[in-house]
């Protein structure tokens, strides 16, 4: 093996090889049963739960020195969470390259977004997941939700969507909208906006999900059917703000709202900073 040893004394990518093997085994199982939550022995990580400990462990287990890592938080590469995770890997994974460019990345760890640039074969998406159980709010008993998954008994989830429409006239979840994976397992897509849900469907990239506190992994292999739950007469709608990006002018991207002053002034900008920057460069050229 020509793997360079990290100078700091850490194992490559922080986790010991035994832990990586355990996580990879769980990931293989997760890939083999798309959408099914696989338990794993989540390790203590040098950052608190809620900061992406699940995603980091998955990334650490799959990444190698020849990889190129991109980390985004809410679509941005330059937020505290994204920056600290990127720095962490730069320190514990010598040889690893980092990037802000979606197209250059081989592994993309994300919190709350899927990049606007279409993913391609060979890329790995790693999602940070706070709550892996889509039925969590409807059925708090863990043993019972496991049973419901085993029996594909998802009427309850549909009841929740029914209630949303009855109360609000439309399906209520604007993010973490539940999906059916491969026609079999109900899955939480993590708190990505519903706007991003369609990007999961038949994606050429491998999609891995890690929930550190809940100690669960799950996966969507490339080219897998991912359907957002809906009704025939109330089809799923990938909602976005009705506006355009103030920086690049895009009308087809997911937008963040910015308050510009204290008199109600506001504007929209692309949530995906890399995509927005690339568009502006192309325009300038």
């Amino acid at each position: 093996m020509s793997t360079p040893m990290p100078e700091s004394g850490y194992n490559f990518a922080y986790l010991d090889e035994g832990t990586k093997r355990m996580i990879r085994r769980a990931l293989l199982k997760a890939v083999a049963v798309p959408g099914h939550q696989v338990p794993f022995g989540s390790r203590e990580m040098p950052l608190p739960y809620g900061w992406g400990t699940g995603g980091i462990q998955v990334t650490a287990a799959v990444i190698g020195p020849e990889d190129t890592l991109k980390v985004i938080d809410q679509g941005a590469d330059d937020t505290t969470n994204a920056v600290s995770i990127r720095r962490f890997f730069a320190r514990v994974a010598p040889g690893l390259r980092t990037t802000e460019r979606t197209a250059e990345a081989t592994v993309i760890q994300t919190r709350h977004r899927i990049p606007e640039t279409p993913l391609s074969e060979g890329q790995v998406m790693v999602y940070q997941v706070p709550q892996p159980e889509p039925l969590y709010k409807l059925e708090p008993r863990r043993a019972e939700t496991r049973r419901l998954h085993a029996l594909a008994d998802y009427g309850l989830m549909q009841v929740k969507l029914y209630e949303d429409i009855a109360r609000q006239g439309r399906v209520g979840s604007s993010y973490d909208h539940p999906v059916m994976v491969g026609g079999r397992y109900l899955m939480a897509p993590s708190p990505i906006p519903a706007f991003d849900n369609p990007k999961m469907h038949m994606s050429p990239a491998l999609q891995l999900f890690g929930a550190g506190r809940e100690r669960r992994l799950y996966a969507v292999p490339p080219y897998t059917e991912v359907r957002s739950l809906d009704f025939e007469d109330h089809p799923f709608e990938p909602l976005r703000a009705n506006g355009h990006c103030a920086l690049c002018g895009a009308r087809d991207t997911y937008l963040d709202e910015m308050i510009t002053d204290d008199r109600g002034g506001r504007l929209f900008v692309c949530s995906d900073t890399d995509h927005c920057a690339t568009r502006r460069e192309e325009k300038a050229a």
């Binding site: 008994d153 009427g155 309850l156 549909q158 009841v159 029914y162 209630e163 429409i165 009855a166 109360r167 809906d230 009704f231 025939e232 007469d233 109330h234």
Partner: peptide
């Protein structure tokens, strides 16, 4: 869950996916 959701649950559990018909 609302009265309508209570009555509709078994319909949905057996595959009904048309909100208007369920209602």
């Amino acid at each position: 869950v609302s009265a309508g959701g209570n009555v509709g649950e078994r319909l949905m559990a057996t595959g009904a996916r048309h909100y208007g018909s369920i209602r």
